[in-house]
Design a protein around this nucleic acid. Structure first.
Lengths: 337, 337
DNA sequence: TTGTAGGCGTTATCAC
DNA sequence: GTGATAACGCCTACAA
């Protein structure tokens, strides 16, 4: 592998002229430039980022730490990150920590060992890992971004979709389509999150003069005999928002098997807008959390920090509702008009 | 950031003693060891992999080049790769090339710039990219692995699932469940691949004395009015294998909407075993291509090359059939008995 | 068993 | 405009 040294020799200039020319730090004579270019071409020179990193004390590699890469939400975000980083000639490291065979300390040490330019922490909304050890990075000047986690900014920028707005959008749409008895189905364990979802979900219902919506916890392994379904039936629920796309699909299936007509008897909305929602029968109305955009914007927060540009400490992405078959068409008469 | 130099000073030993101790290249006196360990602990030393890479002329980073990370097949394989690489303390670079905003030359240059330890090329079975430029890597001693692509080994090990065996398994199961008129539905464009699928799919049918199965190309954007469905109906097909899981789900939906009873009137099998298959109504029998295992084994092929161990030039993973609701139970009387 | 010194490919601080 | 030269942190003959 030829080095700038070889280029310099071949072009009859000094090493540093080559280096500075390659880094655009200098204006060289036309003739010199041609000689350098010719040498690079003839010798097949490829710059060595490792040596550069050692010298500059920083790589062009950004690490993403996530629970599982084979999860559509995370992989969509990752795709957004990847795309944005590539544009700016940064590389993407993936660290899967789901199996938890590595401690936080070990992971952070790995970040330092590899001199990453920055770290993006991706996780569920209620994921609080790395909150303590984060400052070990920040203190050493390694920027970080929290992505998809609903936490207050504390030392590094935070970006997540407005999960609670999603609940509100869903409730509003159910109300708009004439539903009178709403329920919020979830599998969360974080009480604070549940409370926030519930309160936002209630807003459109209460505004329309409806009862306080039901809050239903769905056990894992939903089947036809589930308590969750019985509860919906007993309470005569006619509109439900499920805080998980796959769960929404399973619930839909279970409802259909119980003979419920969707959307006439019960409207269903899922949180998410992947291929899942377009495969169920009926197809699911869903709230799109804009995972790809989240990734792109998160990567931009990272780049802003690395390159010393200003950035927002908190970014909340507005979700959007996608209407499909599992809800009725909104009635012409809007609530409150 | 403290360096081995600082450790050496603090422990009152020479730099090289520290270095060799850390690399297990040496047995040091108990006392020396303790002093080194103490210094490492007190100074919070973290080894610098970048410097190490520069010296060793190779990083611990393995790159995976794939079309899209937000595709369940690829992300499952990637998860397998990630898991195996982490075990051996290698890092994972992700290079998405789907949007094709970079030429092969640029991508390979990026590999060299970053001194990756190896490159795993992941792509569709009929993906022939990088075949020409691959040797640019190999010639420079950078090992590569072809993953999921059905090509003959040529310079680097190849690993893929036995796609054609999947067709055979599916056909055999359809025959076992009493189906008499089979069809293979696909969206492929590679004639050679189609022919191989077709011939293997035919084997169980012909062995059972049935007609040669139908080969049906499904246009994109499958709907109820599709030629594909009409064809299946006209030919009175009662058993179908779809070479794509999502397409299988859509086809199932379309069949149900046309009033077909699955699996009684028509049995459906999809190629793939993700969450998709368990969400459709009815749930889809599928052929699992073992993507995760593919990833793990592929990573092992990479590691074997890097570490100079012997390895198989060609690995073909055996798929397995997962029976669900979209096919009948196999009859007790086996074909050919 | 331990130490000295040179070099990996690059950048950056000086001079000229 | 250009050129020596000294780092960056680590490894490794070679020497002691």
């Amino acid at each position: 592998m030829p080095t700038i040294k070889d280029i310099a020799k071949h072009a009859n200039v000094s090493i540093c002229t080559v280096s500075r020319y390659l880094n655009n730090n200098i204006v060289v004579k036309k003739q010199t430039e041609e000689r350098i270019l010719k040498a690079i071409d003839e010798l097949g020179y490829v710059p060595n980022m490792v040596a550069q990193s050692l010298k500059r004390n920083r790589t062009q590699n950004v690490a993403v730490i996530l629970p599982r890469i084979n999860n559509m939400y995370y992989s969509e975000m990752t795709a957004g990150i990847s795309q944005r980083l590539l544009q700016s000639h940064y590389n993407l490291f993936i660290f899967e920590v789901g199996n938890a065979e590595r401690t936080e300390q070990e992971i952070l040490m790995s970040m330092r060992e590899n001199m990453v330019a920055g770290v993006i922490f991706m996780g569920q909304s209620q994921d609080y890992s790395f909150r303590e050890s984060l400052h070990m990075l920040l203190d050493r000047g390694i920027p970080a971004v929290y992505m998809n986690r609903v936490v207050k900014p504390d030392g590094c920028p935070v970006i997540y979709p407005d999960f609670f707005r999603a609940s509100e959008l869903a409730a509003a749409h159910l109300v708009d389509t004439g539903k009178r008895r709403l329920a919020l189905v979830h599998q969360l364990s974080d009480e604070a999150l549940i409370a926030r979802h519930r309160s936002r979900f209630s807003v459109p219902a209460l505004a329309a003069g409806l009862d306080e919506p039901l809050l239903v916890y769905a056990e894992h392994g939903l089947s036809q005999s589930d308590a969750c379904l019985n509860q919906l039936e007993a309470q005569e629920v006619d509109g439900v928002f499920v805080l998980n796309e796959i769960l929404a699909a399973r619930l839909t299936k279970a409802l259909v098997r119980r003979g419920k007509r969707i959307p006439e008897q019960i409207g269903v909305i899922g949180l998410g807008n992947s291929v899942i929602s377009s495969i169920t029968v009926p197809e699911l109305t869903g709230v799109d959390l804009k995972n790809h955009e989240l990734g792109v914007r998160g990567a931009e927060l990272m780049l802003a920090q690395i390159e010393g540009r200003p950035f927002e400490p908190l970014t909340v992405i507005e979700p959007s509702l996608l209407k499909r078959e599992s809800t009725l068409m909104p009635s012409a008469v809007k609530v409150g008009c």
